[in-house]
């Protein structure tokens, strides 16, 4: 294969995965939320409504691209790109199996968080350039919320890094293979439950998901920062939101649920199906996100800020210190 083509292929694969993930997640969201609300969800197009999303995507693609008067033209056009590109970049470090990943990064975990932290900027860009009150309020809420919850999100994964002694996602997975006492899988969710709980809360907030979907609260803000977007620009913003759900869930699986590995299954059996295991675990995580979304009401913005700054950050700092001391006691002379 030519030297130029080889590095492009993984990128194309990531885009393909992102599109497929978007279509699957929209259908899943409609079905899961439907059944949680004692409805059926889509039923008419195809068996059990399975081609409904495909039809909707085609409709979205063929829609007129409207640009309202008075928008800040360059920023309005650039914003969906600024939202989309970091979401795509976030796939670079995810380990789907021991060999299947785009690139191996020494700082894989930090890298994924870093590129995801650029997404709120695209949101602010979209909200500001739309010249619309609702869009601007939505964007500012999103910015405040995501900046606040990035801190506990990062702090919550630090204990994992401290115990493993590496930020390489593959090494974090490798550390979690095997079982304790013959029955309990060596997953970090067992060892570090507080970290996992903080991670889940902060992740829901980063994803703008109910109960923390203040930035696009339909009943108050029309559709938040995306109000003035139509056609495929809107499509890009939503694609990147679904893709972020996938990435965060994949991170949760990698950090706390042993990534592509399964306990009690020998490596020889596992090796060919590892990516499937990883994706399945990720979708279970997404299902839990949707479950929460269908169950809990929305939190008020000031409650949300209080929870973030006055509870989650102090708790995660205290927990971090505790883990640090224990790690030092258990392994004197260094973490690694």
């Amino acid at each position: 294969m030519s030297q130029v083509l080889a590095p492009i292929l993984p990128v194309l694969a990531a885009i393909g995965l992102m599109l497929a993930n978007g279509v699957v997640l929209i259908y899943m969201l409609r079905k899961v939320l439907g059944h949680l609300h004692l409805r059926l969800g889509p039923v008419h197009v195809g068996p059990k409504g399975i081609v409904q999303t495909t039809a909707d995507v085609l409709k979205l693609l063929s829609k007129e691209d409207i640009r309202p008067n008075g928008v800040d033209r360059w920023m309005y056009v650039l914003a969906p790109v600024v939202v989309f590109v970091p979401s795509l970049m976030a796939y670079a470090a995810l380990p789907f199996s021991e060999t299947l990943r785009i690139t191996r990064l020494d700082t894989g975990l930090l890298y994924t968080f870093a590129v995801l932290s650029v997404v709120p900027l695209g949101v602010i860009m979209a909200g500001w350039s739309s010249a619309n009150k609702y869009a601007l309020i939505g964007a500012l809420r999103a910015a405040a919320q995501q900046v606040a919850y990035e801190v506990p999100l990062l702090l919550s994964v630090l204990p994992v890094v401290m115990i493993v002694g590496s930020m390489d996602l593959a090494e974090i997975v490798a550390f979690q293979t095997g079982v304790w006492l013959g029955v309990v899988p060596r997953w970090f969710v067992v060892l570090l439950i507080p970290s996992f709980v903080i991670f889940m809360i902060a992740a829901l907030c980063e994803l703008n998901q109910t109960p923390f979907d203040m930035s696009e609260a339909e009943s108050e803000l029309v559709s938040g920062f995306a109000t003035e977007y139509s056609s495929m620009k809107f499509g890009l913003i939503f694609l990147s939101e679904f893709s972020n759900s996938f990435v965060i869930s994949a991170l949760a699986v990698t950090l706390f649920f042993g990534g592509w590995t399964l306990p009690f299954v020998p490596d020889s059996v596992l090796a060919p199906i590892a990516p499937v295991v990883f994706v399945l675990k990720t979708y279970i995580g997404i299902f839990v996100f949707m479950w929460i979304r269908g169950t809990l009401p929305r939190v008020r913005i000031d409650h949300l800020m209080n929870l973030g700054w006055k509870w989650l950050i102090p708790i995660s700092l205290a927990w971090l210190m505790l883990v640090g001391v224990v790690v030092k006691l258990v392994a004197p002379g260094g973490v690694a």
């Binding site: 700082t107 930090l110 590129v115 932290s117 900027l121 500012l140 910015a143 405040a144 990035e150």
Partner: peptide, 21 residues
């Protein structure tokens, strides 16, 4: 690598968001 990632995380991801805010 580490410096680059931290630059994106802190300056692009946090400082400029706060500034815009």
């Amino acid at each position: 690598e580490f410096l680059a990632v931290v630059q994106i995380l802190i300056y692009a991801g946090a400082v400029s968001v706060l500034m815009l805010f």
